[in-house]
């Protein structure tokens, strides 16, 4: 019986970036292969992180393998920097990466980790976008076996996925995929672009910035390299369509807060049961308010 031993205190100390250097090296090797084979779900031995699988552990392992002194990190969830999960991940980066700055401004960030959104402001070559992925494989809806899916991906055989989309059209006269829209990268691999809305899918196409996607629980990393074709699957007669933010009269709804008519909107229901629309990208909304220095939402109330 080991009744007398104590916990060594240095056991509780964590190194820069939390992960040990061997884990980082493996993630780094995986990222480079993922870039060389655009859209291919590159397997890696995902480590356990101190937050739940599904909370962004895949994205976080990518971020922590990239990050170093001089970096400025932005973390968003649902477009917002102050959403609970974004706060939690940013706090973890601050805790384990001394010397790294964090920001809420898209334009100031060198690394942007996000769940479910790509910022409204166009990204640049000096930025890397890291998306958290819950389900990396778009073929899972038509083929449960990973071994068989890997062959289909290798052969770029997406006939069954297209059939599924076609069946949708027959039944509903519309493709019913709302988010995680299957997108073909460089004419070969079809990816699950993570649960970004369809609104953000065109931002993957020919992006100046590298986009990395990390699935921690499913242990995959994949990439959309810069200046690479990203095409949502569609048919000639039923085109790909982004979310519709027009009102019954056909006018584009503005953000109730900053008035923007060119951003993805969250639909809110207030205490009186009235609907309001507001920018999902909080930094975009704040920046517009700061520029115009007026708050239409407050003027109304």
């Amino acid at each position: 019986m080991n009744v007398s031993y104590e916990l060594p205190l240095d056991d509780a100390a964590y190194s820069f970036g939390f992960l040990d250097e061997y884990a980082k090296r493996e993630v780094r090797r995986t990222i480079l292969k993922a870039i060389c084979i655009p859209g291919y779900q590159t397997p890696y031995a995902s480590r356990e992180m101190p937050m739940g699988r599904g909370f962004g552990t895949g994205g976080l392992q990518v971020t922590l393998s990239l990050i170093g002194e001089g970096d400025t990190v932005k973390v968003i969830d649902q477009g917002a920097d102050d959403s609970v999960n974004a706060v939690n991940l940013r706090h973890f980066v601050e805790l384990t990466c001394p010397g790294v700055d964090t920001t809420e401004r898209t334009t100031e960030a060198s690394l942007i980790q996000s769940r479910h959104r790509i910022p409204e402001v166009a990204l640049s070559e000096s930025q890397v976008m890291i998306l958290q992925v819950p389900y990396p494989d778009p073929l899972v809806v038509v083929e449960p076996s990973e071994a068989r899916r890997k062959v289909m991906h290798g052969e770029a055989d997406y006939s069954r996925l297209l059939t599924k989309l076609y069946e949708d059209i027959v039944q509903f006269d519309e493709i019913t995929i709302s988010h995680r829209y299957p997108t073909r990268i460089n004419g070969h691999y079809v990816i699950d672009p993570s649960p970004i809305p369809r609104y953000d899918v065109p931002r993957l196409d020919n992006s100046p910035a590298l986009i990395l996607l990390g699935a921690g629980r499913e242990k995959k990393i994949y990439a959309v390299p810069p200046y690479t074709r990203a095409e949502p699957l569609a048919f000639d007669d039923v085109p790909f369509r982004v979310e519709d933010f027009r009102d019954a009269q056909g006018a584009r709804r503005p953000c109730a807060r900053c008035g923007a008519t060119d951003s993805f909107l969250d639909e809110l229901i207030d205490d009186d049961g009235n609907k309001q629309w507001q920018c999902s990208d909080s930094d975009y909304c704040h920046s517009r308010l700061a520029e115009h220095d007026t708050i239409p939402g407050e003027a109304m109330s």
Partner: peptide, 18 residues
């Protein structure tokens, strides 16, 4: 050293991306 390797990796990341 880990910090040196981190900086080198970012250089490699740029080289592979572009």
């Amino acid at each position: 050293q880990p910090p040196r390797q981190q900086r080198a990796f970012r250089g490699l990341l740029t080289a592979f991306s572009y």
